[in-house]
Design a protein around this nucleic acid. Structure first.
Length: 526
RNA sequence: GUCCCUAUCGUCUAGAGGCCUAGGACACCGGGUUUUCAUCCCGGCAACCAGGGUUCGAAUCCCUGUGGGGAUGCCA
């Protein structure tokens, strides 16, 4: 069977980094097996699903090179099929109308099935009993059972579950006398009768559980007595996520559902829904979440949480794609810097971890710098040029920009750092106060500096070689050790203590600015 | 509260009962190269959550506890 997966985001304006990682894993999996990678936009929340938000989503997909197959499905256009599915469930007895809202409209509930034999994913665990708080009331009806269990501290804890969870429950009082037998009145319950009683001290029943196999987490199970029936159509007739999601997955012929960890609980219901709708189940893979330094879900409060943030900061899509692939997955060997093709070849779900991963900005930056280092120089120049303009708002001639970018590429980790190249092009840059005070206040140095500048401005050929010779000569003339003028000169001209080769830097800045800057720096720092 | 998942250096991870004195990468610290910074090279620091089992032998299997996450919506 051909593999078919989908990425099904809600367009909410920004694409979350955890979300796009899910897309990446879907993509890697599909491409690894030569399957299809579909896109479905879950735009049922009309408030937030704006055309701009959708455009942003496409932009992110394109940025990261997540090319999808076939037509995009818009969930909002599938409402009719969702309702049809609800009707089918109603007809089959797997759904029922719930209590009406203030306007008398009724929602539709999906009933956790109690015809266990028809559901192969439901299995019998065995006889179980739960201790109840016998002073509290138990309610049994077709829409579920509510009761109070007895906590270790002797308190009553409210619980609720679907009818299926306690389908054969027998309730006993403190003297062990049977006070209510569900099976005996099952038909009456289904007919709408509500039964209420107090005094139950324990309930005995056959526990059943829903099972599914997760490609990442392994065999999973959840007891029915821990599940409640779920609304699938709201009283305003709009389909709920659970229904829409499953129906759309059926419509798109999805074979593997790869999504976040937070959907594990939903899955127990979804497999039931798939089967009740008469379809074979897809395989599931639930990915661990991305968390922040405190171990909490990574959110916008943690800084860069959206794909757009990373793009803006100057991370290359290849680096971000590579890094995100490595979060919760590894190829099994020591490779880390991998091309998309290598990632596709190496990707399998059995190598995905099932515990959450923390996003490490340092590692991302390091990986990004590796990608930048091996960029074609001309590509780097072009990209840096765009970034420089976008970040500083300054227009610089390409002729002037190009040599600077070429000089700086090897020491650039993110494109966002082009901001620090300002001293090459404008006077709008800041001085490192501490270092300037340290290096520019010595009288001997100041005198030598002025003289060096005089000599430099009179240089016929303002080349890095001549600049180097001139500075060295000045040092010699003033009895200064070789290199004594180096740091003062750099600070006076660029404002900072580090940077590319000083002579090349000065050559690029030019003799006019050189003189102005040294003079003004000497006035500022005395 | 209940249910589900989870637990190896600060971080991402390797590890499927003996290949583990636990490997790699990032970060950090030291050294070399660079008259500075970055790169690069060399070296170092640093972990199996705790307690019980099973076994000749456990990071690996089991149980309990603890920590973390998720779910418990007419959100998705």
């Amino acid at each position: 069977m051909a593999i078919r997966v989908r990425f099904a985001p809600s367009p909410t304006g920004q694409v979350h980094i955890g979300n796009i990682r899910t897309a990446i894993f879907n993509y890697l999996f599909a491409r690894h097996y030569n399957g299809e990678f579909l896109l479905r936009i879950e735009d049922t929340d009309l408030e937030r699903s704006t055309p701009e938000a959708i455009a942003k989503l496409f932009e992110c997909m394109e940025y990261l090179g997540l090319d999808y197959d076939g037509e995009v499905m818009y969930q909002s256009k599938q409402a009719a099929s969702h309702i049809a599915a609800a009707d089918e469930l109603l007809k089959k007895g797997y759904a029922y109308y719930g209590a009406p809202d203030e306007e008398g409209r009724k929602p539709v509930f999906f009933r956790i099935p109690f015809d266990f034999a028809n559901f192969p994913m439901i299995r019998t665990v065995g006889e179980t009993e739960i201790v109840l708080h016998d002073g509290s009331e138990t309610t049994v009806s077709a829409s579920g059972i509510s009761f109070f269990s007895l906590t270790a501290k002797g308190k009553a804890a409210p619980m609720a579950c679907c009818l299926a969870g306690l389908a054969d429950a027998r309730y006993f009082d403190a003297e062990d006398k049977l006070i209510f037998d569900t099976a005996a009145v099952f038909d009456r319950i289904l007919n709408g009768e509500h039964f209420k009683f107090t005094g139950a001290a324990k309930v005995k029943f056959t526990r059943h559980e829903v099972t599914y196999h997760d490609l990442i987490k392994g065999d999973m199970a959840k007891p029915l007595d821990g599940m409640k029936d779920q609304i699938i159509v709201r009283s305003d007739s709009s389909p709920v996520f659970h229904l829409a999601n499953v129906v759309d997955d059926i419509a798109q012929g999805v074979t593997h559902i790869v999504r976040g960890d937070d959907h594990v609980e939903n899955t127990y219901r979804h497999v039931l829904l798939f089967h009740a709708l008469g379809h074979t189940l897809p395989d599931y893979a639930h990915m661990p979440m991305i968390v922040n330094a405190a171990g909490k879900p990574y959110s916008k409060r943690d800084g860069d949480a959206f794909v757009g943030d990373f793009r803006k900061k100057g991370f290359l899509p290849e680096a971000l794609f590579n890094y995100l692939s490595l979060l919760g997955w590894s190829p099994g060997d020591d490779r880390e810097k991998m091309t998309k093709q290598q990632l596709i070849e190496a990707f399998t779900f059995d190598r995905v971890k099932s515990s959450p991963a923390q996003l490490d900005m340092n590692k991302l930056i390091n990986l990004n710098s590796q990608y930048i280092a091996e960029m074609k120089q001309s590509d780097f120049v072009d990209m840096a040029y765009t970034f420089y303009h976008d970040i500083t708002g300054e227009d610089v001639a390409m002729d002037a920009f190009k040599p600077v970018a070429e000089l700086m590429q090897s020491r650039t980790k993110t494109l966002g750092q082009v901001d620090s190249w300002k001293y090459f092009f404008s006077e709008d840059f800041s001085y490192d106060q501490k270092n300037c005070t340290k290096h520019l206040t010595n009288p001997e140095i100041r005198t030598a500096l002025v003289e060096a500048v005089n000599a430099l401005t009179q240089l016929g050929d303002f080349s890095p070689e001549n600049i180097a010779k001139t500075i060295e000569k000045t040092e010699l003339d003033h009895g200064l050790a070789h290199g004594k003028l180096f740091q003062p000169m750099r600070l006076a001209v660029t404002g900072v203590a580090g940077g590319a080769d000083l002579n090349k830097t000065i050559a690029l800045i030019g003799r006019e600015k050189l003189a102005e800057r040294v003079n003004s720096a000497l006035l500022t720092f005395k």
